[in-house]
């Protein structure tokens, strides 16, 4: 699970990233308090090691 700070990361960017990564895992987005929680299930075995990190980079890329 990744917790994105709402004050730093925008929900729109996270949603777009989830859309891009939907073929590699089941992704769930949940807003709780000041955070956006993203959970990953059934991650493609080929990308298991890097998927979450690549996801965070992708979201950051959308923000800049």
């Amino acid at each position: 699970m990744i917790e994105f700070n709402k004050k730093i990361y925008k929900l729109e960017a996270i949603k777009k990233a989830a859309e891009e990564f939907k073929n590699l895992a089941n992704i769930r987005i949940k807003e709780t308090g000041g955070y956006i929680k993203v959970t990953f299930d059934k991650i493609d075995s080929e990308y298991k090691e890097v998927l979450k990190d690549e996801f965070t980079n992708f979201v950051l890329g959308m923000l800049s």
Partner: peptide, 23 residues
Amino acid sequence: YKTAYFFLDKVYVFLSGDPKKEI
């Protein structure tokens, strides 16, 4: 954000903290 974008190809970057106090 823009600086972090520069480093995305070399490292995985994650931002946290409070944008009013410390990032």
